[in-house]
Amino acid sequence: MNDRPRLSGLILTLLLVALAAAVLFPIGLTLVSSLMSEAEIGLNYDLIGKMVDTANGGQEAFVNLKLLPDWLTLAQYSQVLILSPKFLSMFWNSAGLVVPIVAGQALVGSMAAYAFAKLRFPGRDKLFFVYLMTMLMPFQVTLVPNYLVLHELGLMNRPSAIILPGIFGAFGVFMMRQFMSHIPYALTEAARIDGAGQLTIFARVILPLAKPGLAALTVLLFVDYWNMIEQPLIFLQDAGKQPLSLYLAQINQSARGVGFAASSLYMAPMVLLFLYAESYFVEGIQHSGIKG
């Protein structure tokens, strides 16, 4: 009788391990390959699946993926960080775009979400529905109107062409509203009875309770905008202003080692942010009801 739950637990664990391995394997491979020399990477990846006449007495053998480098080298990192200013310049471009967007959307989104979640005004739900509609539309659909508006405003080829639409994105409003709607009305009512204004209630009551939601929003927005491709590609023609996300696309086959090193560094801010906000993130996702 007791064996059944134990067996299903085991199967579940194995399934999760396999899933985790599938997710972690590319990341681990990227990190390992970033420490290989360019020549070793060539030997490793170019010959996979081929019959190769190895040095072993002319025997033929299949080449498999190499998971540990023969020689550890930091040459690729030195290429990326020292010998060329391009990566770092694009890294700071990315930071300059993503930090204002995340901070701005977290602030604007949470204030709007407070209004949608805790204030009662005519047409509130209809307006929220319109918000949702803009979120549901993919970027490509709104590309042309976005382009025309930015062009008319004279914002083309400026970082604000990315930052302003980012700050006023609908996702933050949606997520924070979902999170805030779980906060009981009793708390806001109590504050109001104690004589608190809307701003005080928002800042002193709601915002501290919405911390996990804000953390989750920050991580999700950071990942989303750190990886954006289309917006900078279209709105930032000037190569000197483009973010890091466009950098990896420019790496060709002859510089795969550089690509692995750049990818490892590219991942680092996202991984660090996730680890930092991990517990808030899980809680925030749970309460905002957007999991799965």
């Binding site: 200013p85 770092l88 890294f91 680092a268 660090l272 930092y276 991990e278």
Partner: peptide, 26 residues
């Protein structure tokens, strides 16, 4: 519910060092 094994302080240190390295290289 922290599961990664890093404390907040360690993560702040790592992030700070990472950014300092990039800033120094820049």
């Amino acid at each position: 519910g922290r599961t990664s094994g890093f404390s907040q302080r360690q993560l702040r240190l790592i992030s700070g060092l990472f950014l300092a390295l990039l800033a120094a290289c820049t």
